[in-house]
Amino acid sequence: MTDQERRTGRDETEEERADRMWSELIQEVRVAQTGVQILFGFLLTVVFQQKYAELSGTDKTIYIVTVILGAAATGALIGPVSLHRLVSGRRVKPQAVRTASRLTSAGLFLLLATMTASLVLILRVATGGSPVTWAVAAVVVWYLVCWYGLPLWSRHRHTTR
């Protein structure tokens, strides 16, 4: 058994591994893309609602920041598709997978920030501006546990023996 086989648990070439990892990555991106695109689409409609004019300056600032974060998340999560299209057939799939993985990680972080900012805005409007810090913090902790804590714990538990 080669060093590579011991590390991956599979008998595959670098290209085969890149193909497999690309397929897995693109499935993950599809889930995140759908969520960010729906959220971003809703965010884009807010400014055209009658209630928008009644928002405080702080709430309008939160909204603008949220839209920018949503646009950045959308770009990062769609980036791997464009990357694949532009480098396809150039024999750089292992490098493309690494770059797409970084884009996806950045996109997930930006999605977390977008969802957090959206939640702040929605709860501020829904509660008349009363403090929402604890509610938002609890949800963000939940996101961090689900998106990062459990996966990192599982990776550590199952790869260090």
Rank of each mutant, 00 (worst) to 15 (best):
L123V: 15
T116Q: 04
L123M: 15
R102M: 12
T133L: 06
A117H: 01
F109S: 13
W134C: 01
W142E: 06
V132I: 08
A138W: 13
T127F: 01
L119T: 03
S105Q: 15
G129P: 07
V136S: 04
A126M: 13
R102L: 13
L110M: 09
T116C: 09
T104V: 09
R124P: 00
A126S: 14
L112K: 07
V140R: 01
V136T: 08
T133P: 02
S118E: 12
S130D: 15
F109D: 08
G107E: 12
G128N: 10
S105A: 15
V141F: 00
L111N: 01
Y143P: 02
F109E: 10
L121E: 03
A135C: 09
A106S: 12
V132P: 01
I122W: 11
T104M: 09
A117D: 02
R124Y: 01
S105E: 13
V125L: 07
V132S: 03
G107D: 13
L111R: 00
S118F: 14
L123K: 12
V136F: 05
L110D: 02
L119N: 04
W134Y: 10
T104H: 03
V132A: 03
A126I: 11
V120Q: 09
V120C: 13
L110W: 00
W134N: 05
V125M: 02
A135Y: 11
R102V: 11
G128C: 10
W134A: 08
A117I: 04
L119M: 11
T133A: 07
L119H: 05
T127V: 03
L111M: 10
A126Q: 14
S118G: 15
M115V: 11
Y143D: 07
V132N: 05
L110G: 03
V141R: 00
G129S: 09
G128A: 12
M115W: 09
A137Y: 07
A126E: 13
V120N: 08
V136D: 05
V139Q: 05
S118Q: 14
T127D: 01
A138G: 14
A113Q: 04
V140I: 13
V141I: 03
T114E: 02
L123H: 12
S105L: 15
T116L: 06
P131M: 02
L108Q: 10
A126L: 15
A137G: 06
A137M: 10
A113N: 03
Y143A: 11
A137R: 04
T116F: 03
T104S: 06
A135T: 15
S130Q: 15
L108R: 10
A113W: 00
S105W: 14
W142N: 05
S130I: 13
L112E: 04
